[in-house]
Each structure stands twice: as C-alpha cells, then as structure tokens.
Write a protein that binds this DNA or RNA. Structure first.
Length: 219
DNA sequence: AACTCGGGGCA
DNA sequence: TGCCCAGAGTT
C-alpha cells in the first residue's frame, strides 16, 4: 500500500499537472449546485452545463420545478441521459425541500442523502463546494485512480475508497484533492490508455509499474 | 453483487 | 454504428 509520504508527493505532482482543477458544474447558489449535481449522475459535467444554462433561467426556486408537468421538465433535460428518473427525482426533491427544509438546501451530507437522487457522491460534492465542508466525493475517476495507485484495494467499495483517501489526506486538502483527482483521472490516468509512460507518479504507482513492465502499453 | 435506467461523444 | 463514458436505487 502507498505511504502517506508517497501520497503527499502524488498530490504535489497532480497540482503541477492541473493547477486549475476546480468544480466544473456551473452554478451560483447551493440550490443550483444541487440540481446540477443530481443531473450529473452518469454523464459528464460538460453535458450538464449545456442544459443548466437554460434550465436555471427558467427555474429559480424549488416551487418552480413542481409548478410544471413532469413531461415539460423531462423535455428541458432531455439531452442528458436518464432524464425520466432525474425529472422525477428533481420534482420529489423540490417538494421535500419545501416541506421539510423551508425551501433551503440542508448543509449536511447525511441529510442530503435522504433526498431522492442524492447519493453519497452527490451529497459530498454539494457540501464541499457549496458549504465548504471538507469532503472527498468518490466517483469512478477517484475509484479507478485510487485503486491503480495502491491507495485502495481492488475490491473496495466507493465508501471504502473514500475512507482510505480521508485517512491518507490532511483534512484541509480533502475538497481540493477531489478536484485534482477528477482531472488526473479524466485527462491522464484514463480508463483506457492511461498515460503511464509520461506519468510523474509512475515511480510510486502499483498499476503503472506493472503496466510498464508488461509493455502492453501504447507509447 | 447484479441489474436497470438513456442519452451524447467519439472512433 | 458500435463502443465508451458516468451514480443512484432496487432486488
């Protein structure tokens, strides 16, 4: 397993590679971030941003989302995947915010998870980006990178990966680490054709060294 | 643990 | 045109 010192070195190298890593969802308040993050499940942030530009012009408050027929909301988000589920979740979620939370987004990860369409990953993004709560939102990028580097075991669940990362990372860096790892995973440590031959983390990466030894990697 | 829900992007 | 990408909920 990777040591804390090695992981600290990795974070420094990722910072050099992606100094501008940041949340890519376009939003101006916690409610918009919540909607954008729910929409982002199983699709890219770039795709979500195409939809939310118009969406947030039309829908400002939870009340606005439940004031239209579900077919209309479905149509407004049709170009992203899973739009029927997401439209239903957003209307149910808006109703819950009005009924239980005075129309506000609760700034608590475990409370957010009770909302429909909000799992642990989405809740972690919302509390960390909107409310500054230290959190590491584990998506497929973080999961893959953590397992390749040797920070987590191959059989670990996303929650186990999150716990391993929190254990090895200073708390004040949790939120930043999430964004760095997203960029590193998407553009460098890709699911297909990871850039091991030019990777600055190669000397401490379990999977990278294995791949270089086997030389089945395209350079 | 496996399955389902749906599109866009890209080769 | 077929493969790859990206979470939550249910069984």
């Amino acid at each position: 397993m990777m040591t804390k010192a090695q992981w600290s070195h990795c974070l420094e190298e990722m910072d050099k590679m992606f100094p501008d890593a940041h949340c890519e969802l376009v939003h101006s308040n916690p409610f918009e971030l919540l909607i954008a993050t729910v929409l982002s499940a199983q699709c890219t942030d770039a795709l979500v941003n195409k939809v939310t530009k118009d969406l947030f012009q039309k829908y400002k408050k939870p009340e606005d989302y439940i004031s239209v027929p579900i077919e209309e909301l479905q149509n407004d988000i049709r170009s992203i995947g899973l739009f029927r589920n997401k439209a239903k979740n957003i209307q149910a979620l808006s109703l819950m915010l009005i009924d239980q939370f005075n129309g506000e987004v609760p700034p608590d990860r475990d409370v957010l998870t009770t909302l429909p369409g909000v799992g642990r990953k989405t809740a972690n993004v919302v509390v960390s980006v909107a409310f500054g709560v230290p959190a590491i939102a584990v998506d497929t990028h973080l999961e893959r990178v953590s397992k390749r580097l040797g920070l987590a075991r191959w059989k670990d669940t996303p929650l186990q990966v999150e716990e391993a990362l929190m254990k090895k990372t200073p708390k004040e860096l949790w939120s930043k680490t999430h964004h760095q790892m997203i960029f590193f995973g998407r553009y460098h440590c890709k699911a297909q054709n990871p850039q091991c031959p030019v990777c600055p983390l190669l000397d401490v990466c379990r999977e990278g060294k294995k791949r270089m030894k086997n030389r089945d990697v395209r350079v």
